[in-house]
Nucleic acid binder design. Structure first.
Lengths: 241, 241
DNA sequence: CGAACACTTGACAGCCCTCAACGTGAGTGG
DNA sequence: CCACTCACGTTGAGGGCTGTCAAGTGTTCG
């Protein structure tokens, strides 16, 4: 359901947060190349919360960059249980794990209002042969997704996991210009718990304790990190891995 | 330390297990192309157990396919604790996670006698622009590595983890022609435990119980899966994810 | 032959999950 | 405007899995 937003994507004025445009512009791609890249982009959205962006098992044909909002990726096992794989913020790319089998291995769902830039992967591949910078960018995007399951692996305590989760989320949001230490979660506790391999009740309890110890202030899904340093210390084992 | 083995890698008779040669041959690459691919390969080894193949933090310049033996990848955190990321068998590719930052994010160590095919990544990238099949193969290799942290994520019991680990290992070995249900582990219990996020003692206990229930026979690092079906059932939550 | 190492086995404690009940907003329909 | 509903979140009690600590056994290697 493509729907062009008014404030971006016009002609040669490409999304400023788009990982691909950044890569190409940095390499001095000429206007013709940029136009080609732009042609194979669909600007999608805004999609309301709950929208299915791509579905587990569906044929893979495109990747997408999040432009605004938050996307959750999750897979369902045969027993119907959900396993949350990650949350994806503006500037981050989803769908790369579908390349291998030419099927998406997971669902991608908008958890608030989401805008995307959708790239046909076959077209992107062809273009990447002519644009070394684009090829390199694709390789790097893929590579950086490999080691990103750090919060889950290893034997970490609930405190470590949640502290690291909050710090990393804060950093990711801050690098996009959001006010640091001031985050509003788009996802419910159950999703965070699932992602971190914990029970929702544990999230509540740890958050409570963090608040009692003046490290965060919590009101529903709005959080303020009042002592990010201590959170970093607690999550150090994960953060400094 | 390149050292040419005698039984393979001769002229146009390329490694039969090599993921790259398979991809190119399947696409009908001509002899000239194959020769080019071959030129940028170093046949390395045999390396004795304990050899460091690449080191965490070192500049990234190449990926490698395991030709024989077993490779362990692991990273050390600031406190010096080791986190085992994976074990890599013949036919599998290591080093891909180094592309993103142009540094290897982990160590790769030979845990028994290992032979490798080493590919200069810059050269491979250039060649991939002319060989669509090679580019596709690279994208797929990278993509398939993204979701491979399945045993660690999620909340799984020690039984589920170890059962899934044994089944997956057995399958990977069998697909390379090893006798099914008959595996000799190259790695010590501590590495398996570390990889699975468990204590070494837990590995012992679970293995003991599996043996008491006639699912495996254990003698040191030689295992026989006497009831692979039941192991698959126990590990189903992970295997069927 | 001794030492180092890997592995096993046992006892105990701790973390976190499960189960259960309650509180609290947000959206809805009267 | 208000009561209702429902999902989400919180809090408490209890128990199970698995980590930690400790000691013992077997094997390999110098």
């Amino acid at each position: 359901v493509p729907q062009l937003p008014s404030d971006d994507g016009t002609e040669l004025q490409f999304c400023t947060i788009c990982p691909f445009s950044r890569s190409c512009l940095a390499e001095g791609v000429d206007k013709q190349d940029l136009r080609e890249l732009q042609v194979l982009v669909d600007h999608v959205g805004p999609l309301p919360a709950g929208s299915l962006i791509f579905e587990q098992g569906a044929p893979f044909d495109a990747i997408a960059a999040v432009r605004s909002g938050t996307v959750k990726t999750a897979r369902l096992d045969r027993e119907g249980r959900e396993h949350v794989l990650g949350f994806h913020l503006p500037g981050e790319v989803i769908g790369l794990s579908g390349i291998a089998d030419e099927r998406y291995p997971c669902n991608a769902v908008a958890i608030d209002s989401v805008q995307l830039c959708r790239f046909s992967f076959p077209k992107l591949s062809v273009l990447a042969r002519r644009l070394p910078g684009l090829q390199k960018r694709l390789f790097r995007l893929l590579s950086s997704d490999i080691g990103s399951a750090t919060l889950l692996s290893g034997e970490y305590t609930a405190d470590e996991r949640l502290a690291a989760f909050l710090v990393l989320l804060s950093r990711r949001l801050a690098s996009r210009g959001s006010p640091e230490n001031q985050l509003s979660l788009a996802m419910p506790r159950t999703d965070i718990a699932n992602y971190l391999g914990l029970a929702p009740e544990t999230i509540s309890r740890v958050l409570r304790r963090f608040q009692d110890e003046r490290m965060v202030r919590v009101y529903r899904r709005r959080l303020e990190l009042t002592n990010p340093r201590r959170l970093e210390t607690i999550g150090a084992a994960i953060l400094r891995a």
